[in-house]
C-alpha cells in the first residue's frame, strides 16, 4: 500500500522531531481525508501529552501578537510550542492571505517552535476542519504546548473551546456597550478574558462591563475567569496572562477537570466519526435501494410523511448492517 508506506514514513519522521515531516503530515490532513485516517491511526498512541491553549476574539484584537508573546514566555520557561493560526479563505476564489505569522517571525528559526498557518477553507466554526488533527501532529511532534489561534470571530464561532484545554477570549476596549457582554456565545466559553490594547481610554468602561458580566453569572463555578489587561505590542501584561494560563491548568489538573474535558472531547470525536461512517457506509448506500425511491415518491405524493420515510431508510440500513454488507 503506497498510502500506508508514505504515512508510516511521515509518522517515523514526526516521532524523530522532523519539522518537514510534521508539515507534510498537516498538508496531507488538509488535502486528503482517507490518507489522513491512516496517518492519525498510527500517530494516535503518541498523542495526549501537549497542553492546548485556544485564543479567540474579533479581528484586529491582537491575537497573533499575543500568541507571539506567549510563545516567547513559554520558551523562556523551557517549553516547546506548536502554533496553528487560522485565517479565512476567500468565499469567491478559495484563495487566502495567511498573515498571522508576520507577528511571530522571531520564533521561526527556533527548532522548539513550530508555526503553521491554516486556511479555514469555508469551515465556519472559527477553525479549519483539519485543525484538530493538525493539533495531534504537533502533540506527537513533542510540543509541550499547542496554541490554536482562530480566525477573527464574531459571536458564535465556539469550536475552539471544544479543542482547547484553556480558552482565552481576547477583547479590546470600546467594542460595544454592556448588552454585548451579556449576549450568549463567545462570552460564555472563556476560561480567561484578555482586554488587549489596554492603553486605550475606553479600558475602564470595558473592564467594568466585563466584571459586571462575571459578577452576575448565576452558575456556581469553581473557576471564575480572570480578566487580564495587556498591551501585546509592548508585552505589557503578558506575563500575567501566562500565569493565568498556568493557574487554570493547575486548577483543571488538581480538580480533575482536565481529564473530564478531554474525555468529553474524545467522546464527541468518536461519535462524529461513527456518524460520518454510518452516513457514508450505511445510509447513503441504502438510498440506492428501490424501496427508498418508492418511499420518496410516496412522500412527494403526500401518501407518506418524511419521518415515516426516514424510518424506512433506517430499517433498510439496519438490514444492510445485519447482512454484514
Amino acid at each position: 500500500m503506497a498510502i500506508a508506506a508514505a504515512s508510516q514514513n511521515l509518522v517515523d519522521g514526526i516521532l524523530a522531531g522532523s519539522h518537514r515531516a510534521a508539515a507534510k503530515a498537516i498538508s496531507l490532513i488538509e488535502n486528503d481525508e482517507r490518507a489522513s485516517e491512516q496517518l492519525i491511526r498510527r500517530l494516535y498512541p503518541q498523542t495526549g501529552n501537549a497542553y492546548t491553549v485556544g485564543l479567540t476574539g474579533p479581528p484586529g484584537a491582537g491575537k497573533s501578537t499575543l500568541v507571539d508573546d506567549i510563545a516567547q514566555i513559554a520558551r523562556g520557561d523551557g517549553e516547546s510550542v506548536g502554533i496553528i493560526a487560522v485565517d479565512p479563505n476567500s468565499p469567491f476564489s478559495g484563495g487566502a492571505i495567511l498573515g498571522d505569522r508576520i507577528r511571530m517571525m522571531r520564533h521561526t528559526v527556533d527548532p522548539d517552535v513550530f508555526i503553521r498557518s491554516m486556511g479555514s477553507r469555508g469551515h465556519l466554526g472559527g477553525l479549519a476542519v483539519a485543525t484538530s488533527q493538525a493539533r495531534d501532529v504537533l502533540d506527537a511532534l513533542g510540543m509541550g504546548y499547542v496554541i490554536l489561534e482562530t480566525v477573527g470571530v464574531g459571536q458564535s464561532e465556539l469550536e475552539v473551546a471544544e479543542l482547547a484545554d484553556t480558552t482565552v477570549v481576547v477583547l479590546m476596549p470600546g467594542l460595544g456597550d454592556s448588552v454585548q457582554t451579556i449576549k450568549a456565545g463567545i462570552m460564555e466559553i472563556a476560561d480567561i478574558f484578555v482586554i488587549n490594547k489596554a492603553d486605550h481610554p475606553a479600558l475602564a468602561r470595558t473592564a467594568a462591563d466585563l466584571r459586571e458580566l462575571l459578577r452576575l453569572d448565576p452558575r456556581q463555578r469553581a473557576w471564575t475567569p480572570p480578566i487580564v489587561k495587556t498591551v501585546a505590542t509592548n508585552e505589557d501584561g503578558v506575563h500575567e496572562l501566562w500565569q493565568a494560563i498556568l493557574k487554570h491548568r493547575r486548577f483543571l489538573e488538581e480538580k480533575g477537570g482536565l481529564k473530564e474535558r478531554r474525555r468529553r472531547r474524545l467522546e464527541r470525536q468518536v461519535v462524529e466519526i461513527a456518524a460520518r461512517r454510518l452516513r457514508e457506509e450505511v445510509l447513503v448506500p441504502s438510498t440506492e435501494a428501490s424501496g427508498f425511491r418508492r418511499a420518496v415518491q410516496a412522500v412527494t405524493d403526500r401518501r407518506l410523511d418524511p419521518y415515516a420515510a426516514a424510518d424506512q431508510l433506517m430499517e433498510e440500513g439496519a438490514k444492510r448492517v445485519a447482512a454484514g454488507s
Binding site: 510534521a22 487566502a96 508555526i115
Partner: peptide, 22 residues
C-alpha cells in the same frame, strides 16, 4: 493560499517558514 511573512526576513527565517508551511 499565500503565506505572507512580512519585511526584513533573513534567508534562514524564509526557509524555516517555508518548511513549516509546506
Amino acid at each position: 493560499e499565500v503565506i505572507y511573512t512580512g519585511l526584513h526576513q533573513t534567508p534562514e527565517q524564509v526557509v524555516s517558514a517555508a518548511v513549516q508551511e509546506d
